[in-house]
């Protein structure tokens, strides 16, 4: 019994598997049959895809040893730091990679993983406001729009069910950093969000789509990947990246320490780093690639899509959500619980 606490902090043992099969654990919409078929044709390696819908689920599964089959994971930025700290990710041998230099300059040395030592950036995006023109008074340009129009928008707003993102919006509105650890600032952000709370219909990361299409919701805070897909579905919907800046997120490719098939993992990463492969995937799946060479190959209408690829001045005002210390995390969690049970 006394062992169980040690188990929580002990990395799972390395597995060994079939060299001709690659198990990857990824988000929905990051790969499709075309991509996998091309890889299998090229390498003869069969790819088995499992989907997760939150970093924490993926992280807990890996921690608990339930992910021993996977040789490729798609952790988000701050999760990479955490998983490296937990000893869950292998260092990437850059000598085995081809085309790493093709990455956009912002991702050559990201703060969450200096020098891309344990991860390779794959896809990135923003968090912004998805709104239905028919039922929104005016067009939002920044986060403060929600506060300024809270009566008109009352109970027609959803925010992400994500404490760092959503409390981060309040921090941003107050002019603080998403990654602040100053208790006074965090409490001030709680107070700011508390003002808006009575007018918020729900905190939802998914499940707002039908409601916003039907006009039951005016504005939903959403990840760019989800929002852009919806704007293509219905022209009444639009996505804005708030002018004062937002959170930038990156999903990466990483190799777990327990990976049974490291060779295939490197082949997968190299495959996705190839500009032509990445370009074709982006055209089909419409995500923002971190690969400059692939970006350059894209047609203009995709490259000039401000929603997908916001201008540099917006990027400069934005920041990635970083892993913070336990005490600050707890403070966020407590205020988040307060907000969601007000």
């Amino acid at each position: 019994m006394a062992n169980c606490r040690q188990n929580l902090t002990r990395p799972p043992v390395t597995g060994s598997g079939d060299p001709n099969t690659l198990h990857i654990y990824t988000w929905a919409n990051y790969s499709d049959d075309g991509l996998i078929a091309a890889f299998t044709e090229r390498t003869g390696i069969r790819v088995v895809v499992d989907i997760f819908d939150s970093n924490e689920i993926m992280q807990t599964k890996m921690r608990a040893g339930g992910g021993a089959a996977y040789s490729i994971l798609y952790p988000s930025d701050y999760v990479v730091s955490e998983m490296v700290g937990d000893g869950l990710l292998s260092a990437i041998d850059h000598s085995r990679l081809v085309g790493l230099e093709n990455l956009k300059k912002q991702w050559q040395n990201p703060t969450y993983d200096p020098g891309n030592a344990h991860s390779v950036p794959f896809n990135w995006g923003t968090t912004g406001l998805l709104y239905n023109r028919d039922v929104t008074p005016g067009s939002p340009e920044d986060w403060i729009f929600l506060w300024d129009n809270q009566d008109a928008l009352s109970r027609r707003i959803t925010l992400l069910d994500d404490m760092r993102e959503t409390l981060g919006v309040a921090l941003k509105v107050l002019g603080y950093s998403y990654n602040t650890t100053d208790p006074a600032q965090i409490e001030a952000a709680y107070g700011k969000l508390r003002e808006l709370q009575p007018h918020i219909a729900a905190f939802k990361t998914t499940g707002f789509e039908n409601e916003i299409l039907a006009g039951d919701l005016s504005i939903s805070m959403a990840y760019s990947s989800d929002a852009i897909a919806l704007t293509l579905e219905d022209e009444r919907l639009d996505y804005v990246i708030p002018a004062s800046g937002t959170s930038l997120w990156t999903d990466t490719l990483a190799i777990p320490t327990s990976a049974p098939n490291v060779d295939a993992a490197y082949q997968w990463i190299n495959f996705l780093l190839e500009p032509e492969v990445a370009k074709a995937a982006v055209e089909r799946l419409l995500f923002a690639t971190a690969n400059q060479a692939a970006f350059d190959l894209l047609p203009d209408e995709i490259r000039n899509n401000d929603q997908l690829y916001p201008p540099d001045e917006v990027l400069d005002r934005s920041e990635g959500i970083q892993s913070i210390d336990t005490a600050s995390n707890d403070l966020f969690d407590r205020f988040w619980t307060e907000i969601t049970s007000a």
Binding site: L8, N329, T340, S341
Partner: peptide, 26 residues
């Protein structure tokens, strides 16, 4: 979670947040 709106935190969601949320306060 689906029907409750912004003020519907209950014990099972709170537990979920502790295990699978960023605090990881098991």
């Amino acid at each position: 979670t689906l029907l409750g709106g912004a003020s519907s935190m209950n014990i099972s969601r709170l537990i979920y947040n502790q295990f699978l949320g960023p605090t990881r306060a098991w």
